[in-house]
Simulated assay, not measured.
Amino acid sequence: MRGEYKVPGGKLVAVDVEVEDGRLARVTVSGDFFLEPDSALGDINAAVTGMSADADADQLAHAIIGALDDSVSLIGFTAQSVGIAVRRALGHATSWADHTFDLISPVVLDPAMHVALDEVIAREVAAGERPPTLRFWDWDSPLVVIGSFQSVRNEVDSAAAERHGIGVVRRISGGGAMFMEPGNCITYSLVVPGSLVEGLSFEQSYAFLDQWVMGALSEVGINARYVPLNDIASDKGKIAGAAQKRFVSGTVLHHVTMAYDIDAEKMTQVLRIGREKMSDKGTKSAAKRVDPLRSQTGMTREAILESFANHFRAQYDTRDSDYTEAELDEARTLVETKFSTESWTHRVP
């Protein structure tokens, strides 16, 4: 069996392995990485040979680290990357190429429906009723979507929100508040099985799941980079933030919101944290519009969304899809019974 893993920003690690009586046998690690001294390659192979075929990536990495002394340099790869490659060889971990993704183009809905659909789609992927899914949001009304663990009163000026007709909904993932008006940002949700991020730390999985969008941003002329833990920045500053939710089923929800044409004056009236962030950056006038994607690309929001979708199609095996009536009905029920209730929205006052 053979497994491969490309280290983000690093080299390719490949592992050929057999299993005998539940143990790893005839392990051969290879790749375009660098290793000094080269004799350490045999030590790496020996370290995992004989280990249980059920060992996870962390256990495999720990065995490798324990077998190498301080004189060994792993360049372009890590012990953990070897562990991930082994897990892929055994079928416990998967790569992008192992999946066909449903791709759902923007559908205009109440933004609270998109928050509910995150939960609905995640359940279906976990149950095998949908393959891994990338879906783009579009919405018809303003809303502040706060992170699962944020305090409403600390994040939102309720009087300003009411004055501007902006509601508040709490999502199921952590992270910061999303100030959403029609046409002001680009948001997508990616739901994948846990096998795709097998062996990756939370921090590593953020960058890993957004690898595709870095290429998509490059295609529209933006030189972007990932800033740990969960920010995407260009040469002109932060342009996006990511959030994640990992379910007991193993399914991972990963979503990103990018600023396209945000009214910073209104945002800083409604979001209390917005005022602090603006003052921290030395911004004197909140009236200045924050529109990094529009100003940096000169493209319409619709054109950027289409370019992003086409880039994803070019990278991975996809099929175009849409929401089913059953999914929309379930989302409506969740909005009514959970996401629009005081007990959920204000569970952190």
Rank of each mutant, 00 (worst) to 15 (best):
K11S: 15
A287E: 11
Y5M: 07
I239F: 11
L217P: 11
E4G: 08
A61V: 02
Q315C: 14
T324I: 06
D329S: 14
K236V: 09
K338Y: 03
L196R: 09
W212D: 14
F179C: 10
D32C: 05
Q211M: 14
T283E: 04
P106K: 10
L103S: 07
K245N: 11
K266Y: 01
A177P: 05
E276Q: 03
D329N: 12
Q59I: 08
I104T: 03
R170Y: 00
H311D: 13
D280P: 00
A57I: 02
I304D: 09
P8V: 11
L271I: 08
E327N: 04
V108I: 15
G215R: 12
T187E: 14
F202I: 15
V48H: 04
I186T: 12
Y188F: 15
G9Y: 12
V107P: 10
E302K: 15
A116I: 06
D70R: 03
Q315D: 12
A287H: 08
D54Q: 13
H311T: 15
D320A: 11
D70P: 00
A61Y: 09
F101K: 09
Q150R: 07
Q204L: 11
E276G: 00
W137N: 09
S307N: 08
V227H: 06
G221P: 13
V290I: 10
V27W: 07
R332H: 06
H62Y: 05
M258S: 12
R163D: 14
H346N: 14
S81I: 05
Q244M: 15
S343E: 14
S195H: 07
S95D: 13
G50N: 06
T341K: 03
V72P: 06
I64Q: 09
H92C: 01
D210I: 00
G194I: 12
Y260R: 02
P193R: 08
N230G: 07
G10A: 08
D235Y: 05
S105W: 15
A47K: 06
A57Y: 11
E325V: 14
I104E: 02
A116D: 05
M214Y: 15
E336H: 04
K266A: 01
P37L: 07
G147S: 03
E129K: 02
R123G: 08
A233D: 11
Y323K: 05
G215I: 03
R170C: 07
H62A: 15
V115P: 10
L200I: 05
A287W: 00
V107W: 02
A122D: 01
P228L: 05
L68N: 06
V144Y: 03
E124C: 02
I186Y: 10
D69I: 00
E129S: 05
S39G: 04
I64L: 10
Y206P: 13
G221C: 09
R135Q: 10
G128D: 07
A25C: 06
F312A: 09
T100Q: 14
G42N: 12
S321P: 04
T345Y: 00
Q296N: 04
L229F: 13
E325C: 06
H255R: 06
P131T: 07
R275F: 02
F202L: 15
T100W: 03
D54F: 07
W212A: 10
L271V: 09
T49C: 09
R272F: 04
S295E: 10
G3I: 12
S307M: 06
H114I: 04
A79H: 03
A287C: 01
R153Y: 12
I44M: 12
A243W: 02
L271G: 01
T333G: 03
E119T: 11
A89H: 09
D231W: 09
A259D: 09
E276H: 01
